[in-house]
């Protein structure tokens, strides 16, 4: 098949924004950038594209973090990956916060703060000096062709080449997303931690009330 893998570029931004949306929804209709910020899906998608336009490196919302697979010249799958706080670099959570705060504006943030307790319950800290992967999406018509596996392998290969001291790769996944968990398990990941909310309101805003941290050792 004519699939090719490459680094994302600015012209991929619409596809990357869709990737973020589909990954965040985790096979539900709950899109956190819409529900938690009181924005329509269309507005949230535009704001995600605007965040990519800022070209901030070192977090999941960086164009430079994404690998894409294209088919007949069009992106059909994408996955973000970056080294967390490598040798004292900035915490990706704060970089992402700066991006969101800068882009979404005060009103949306005020709304978010009324729901912050829900997010905090299932927040899992990212570990410094690890390869973090986030936001996997494969277009439905291209599933079942091991594209996710290829993206993960390529991220690991590039991370080890560039940062040989990296010891593990981690991914966070909602409990309801069994398909993604299966992909990660097949790639050698296992669940090492979970975070759960006991507040049922969370299901009005997020795909699940529980998140898993899955990990794979790199040798």
């Amino acid at each position: 098949m004519n699939y090719s893998i490459r680094r994302a570029r600015l012209s991929d931004i619409p596809f990357l924004a869709k990737t973020v949306m589909e990954a965040e929804k985790s096979a539900t209709d709950k899109f956190s950038f819409s529900t938690l910020f009181n924005k329509s899906e269309a507005e949230a998608l535009e704001l995600i594209a605007a965040m990519f336009d800022e070209e901030v490196d070192g977090c999941e919302l960086s164009v430079s973090s994404f690998l894409v697979i294209e088919f007949e010249g069009k992106p059909v799958a994408a996955f973000s990956g970056w080294i967390e706080q490598f040798e004292g670099e900035s915490n990706s959570g704060l970089l992402k916060s700066n991006l969101i705060g800068y882009t979404f504006g005060r009103e949306s943030l005020s709304f978010l703060m009324t729901k912050a307790h829900l997010v905090k319950d299932i927040q899992i800290e990212r570990e410094a000096n690890t390869l973090q992967i986030e936001y996997l999406f494969v277009a439905p018509e291209h599933r079942g062709k091991s594209l996710a596996h290829q993206l993960i392998s390529k991220h690991i290969e590039e991370a080890i080449k560039q940062f040989p001291s990296i010891k593990k790769v981690q991914v966070q996944v909602f409990k309801n997303n069994l398909a993604a968990q299966k992909v990660y398990e097949n790639c050698g990941f296992s669940i090492v931690k979970s975070a759960k909310s006991n507040d049922t309101e969370i299901l009005d805003y997020l795909p699940s009330d529980e998140k898993y941290l899955m990990e794979k050792e790199l040798n």
Binding site: L99, G101, L112, M113, A116
Partner: peptide
């Protein structure tokens, strides 16, 4: 944390009447 950081920065911008560059 990453959540409160967003609101801290926007509150500082509002209190001083400034807008920071990303």
């Amino acid at each position: 944390d990453s959540l409160t950081h967003m609101i801290i920065i926007t509150e500082i911008e509002s209190a001083f009447g400034v807008k920071f560059k990303l």
